[in-house]
Design a protein around this nucleic acid. Structure first.
Length: 565
RNA sequence: GCGCUCGUAGCUCAGUUGGACAGAGCGCUGCCCUGCGGAGGCAGAGGUCGUGGGUUCGAGUCCCGCCGAGCGCGCCA
């Protein structure tokens, strides 16, 4: 559509209707009011100033050069200078066949052109069960990844496992204490340790399976106990996420960044990245520590190696992003972070840009733009509520409502839909009382699923009457039929918009509109009707197409699309 | 103090990258359907888009100030 207008603009200039001027951005949008056509462009309004002509005249000049035909049925110029395009109803109806031909891929586009993009999300410390807030990141990341796949990207879902550093050490010490206590030994959970019940349960589970195997608590036994605890905690996290329908392609170990690699001449990714930073002049030493000198204006220097010689989390994070871009060659990387990590965005981008640029000069990385491929999607916190009572979430207090509890109470579909409903920028309250309410009216997801089930039911009824989808889609001339087709045709554009803006939450609103358009069609048009078999078969086609569009929309959200409810 | 995000209908929130009279769901009022699944459909009431300026042909959307809410500013992760 944009191309058509651009061509018309060129044509208008070529034949002298408009003066020559440098290429302007062609803005095309879908008007809110149906009277304004299917698409509208405001190019004329933008151009009018520079060409010193009345906007209406400019619009008319462009409109005169827009050919009408099988696709575009009408071009209208409207004050103050809009160009409104109306698609041919015949063409729209014919698109129903395109939907029927793509039951598993309707809405897919090739925006990404096969570029490799990694979405890293959740990545919660494996020192406790996942919290409700992690669920929001899980849903956002998973749905975004699916949207990017639909947009033509090759996507990998990755969980970064923080299995090195202070938190893991404290986790091990807490586990040692609980394990020792289980066998009646005097032991104290260390200061800053994990007080939650789950640590008791973890210690008991290990004791039940492995007995006193680790009770000596000498160095090897402590390491083995810690590793065992971490392994079990990760299994639990994996299970919590599976309950939500989230699965990862890669579980990436932070500790592996510190291990020597043959491909790096026996050095670790961490050492290699630090060398590049040093050689690139991005590092200063002061107060006995090593600092990354950030080039970002809104950032200050940050410690990467403590005076003790131990790397900070930031240091391994730099190595991690070095690994993503320089070693694994992703074109784009999207980190989905909670808003409490907001302060890390600037420094991580700056450091990633610095280290990949240095690696590229050294021939260790491709010549892709440094750091430009790194994007952060921040989501605001989830506040948990039970009616009027605020539930505080903290791994340290032990007063937890875990993600697992939430999903078990509310169900996967409702959890995913609720988490997805709001834009990532906005805080959200998750009211357990409301979400666990048995009143289906509280859950818009039911309305959408019901529409899908109704499609299936109608198709079943048609089959019983000996009527199958078929016939000529040009028989679908009613206003509700066309409105439904319009709604289905918007899905590919929606995918493009969501992939471009990294805003998967638009799916929920679209799903509701699509379901409404189908329900209105259902109310206005009798589908299964033996007295008008041709029309009936055409409407069965439309019903099947609607089922596909609904299933694809629900599928992108990771919400089930039942044939019966 | 500095930075990030948010402030839109009684409630919960959208608002497609600055467009044509501000939208949805729930709640409220009234009406419709003795039809393939009523977990419906239609209509109505309800909004100075926190506030004051600015940019623009045009601002809920961009810029600045102020007010309010959340989060972040560690040799923690």
């Amino acid at each position: 559509m944009r191309a058509a207008i651009a061509a018309a603009l060129d044509d208008a200039q070529a034949r002298g209707a408009l003066p020559r001027l440098p290429g302007a951005e062609i803005a095309v949008e879908r008007p809110q009011k149906p009277e304004h056509g299917d698409y509208a462009s405001s190019v004329a309004l933008r151009l009018a100033g520079t060409v010193k002509r009345r906007p209406l005249d400019v619009a008319q000049a462009i409109a005169d050069s827009l050919p009408t035909g099988a696709l575009i049925a009408a071009v209208e110029v409207a004050p103050p200078g809009f160009i409104n395009l109306r698609l041919a109803p015949d063409w729209k109806r014919a698109q129903v066949e395109a939907i029927l031909a793509a039951p598993d891929s309707w809405g897919a586009i090739d925006l990404g052109a096969g570029q490799r993009v990694q979405v890293e999300f959740v990545s919660a410390n494996p020192t406790g069960p996942l919290q409700v807030g992690n669920g929001r990141g899980a849903v956002l990341g998973d749905v975004l990844a699916g949207v990017l796949e639909a947009a033509g990207y090759e996507v990998e879902r990755e969980y970064y496992v923080n299995d090195a550093g202070a938190q893991v050490r404290i986790f091990g010490e807490t586990l040692e204490a609980r394990y020792a206590q289980h066998f009646g030994r005097a032991a104290e959970v260390p200061a800053g340790g994990y007080q939650g019940r789950y640590m008791l349960e973890l210690a008991e589970a290990i004791a039940a399976d492995r007995g006193e195997e680790f009770l000596s608590l000498d160095e090897p036994a402590r390491d083995a106990l810690g590793a065992e605890g971490l392994r079990r905690m990760l299994d639990q996290i994996r299970g919590d996420l599976a309950l939500l329908g989230v699965e990862f392609d890669v579980w990436f170990s932070e500790a592996s960044l510190l291990a020597p690699r043959d491909a790096l001449d026996g050095r670790s990714a961490y050492e290699t990245a630090m060398t590049y930073l040093r050689d690139g002049g991005h590092v200063v030493e002061k107060e006995g520590a090593v600092w990354f000198a950030s080039s970002a204006r809104d950032d200050k220097d940050n410690v990467i190696v403590r005076s003790s010689g131990e790397p900070t989390y930031f240091a391994t994070d730099i190595a991690y992003h070095f690994d993503k871009f320089a070693l694994r060659g992703f074109d784009r990387v999207i980190d989905v972070w909670g808003a409490d990590h907001q302060g890390h965005v600037a420094r991580t981008k700056a450091a990633t840009a610095a280290v990949t640029a240095a690696a590229r000069e050294d021939g260790d990385a491709d010549d892709r733009p440094p750091g430009d491929g790194l994007e952060m999607l921040l989501y605001q916190l989830v506040h948990l509520r039970r009616g009027d009572e605020r539930v505080r979430m903290s791994k340290r207090t032990g007063e937890l409502v875990t993600l697992r509890e939430l999903v078990e109470e509310v169900g996967r579909d409702v959890t995913r839909y609720f988490m997805l409903q709001r834009s990532a920028d906005a805080q959200m309250d998750f009211d357990l009382e409301l979400a666990t309410s048995q009143d289906p009216k509280q859950n818009p997801v039911s309305y959408v699923q019901y529409a899908h089930a109704r499609c299936a039911s109608i198709l079943r009824n048609g089959a019983k009457e000996g009527l199958q989808p078929g016939g000529d889609v040009q028989a679908l001339t009613g206003p509700t039929e066309l409105a439904l087709i319009d709604a289905m045709l918007r899905l590919p554009e929606l995918v493009e918009m969501m992939a471009t803006k990294l805003e998967p939450h638009h799916l929920t609103g679209y799903a509701l509109e699509l379901a409404q358009d189908f329900t209105q069609f259902y109310g206005a048009c009798r589908v299964v009707n033996g007295e008008e078999p041709d029309l009936s078969r055409a409407r069965l086609k439309l019903t099947r197409a609607a089922q596909i569009a609904l299933a694809r929309t629900l599928g992108l959200m990771g919400v089930s699309a039942p044939d019966e409810m």
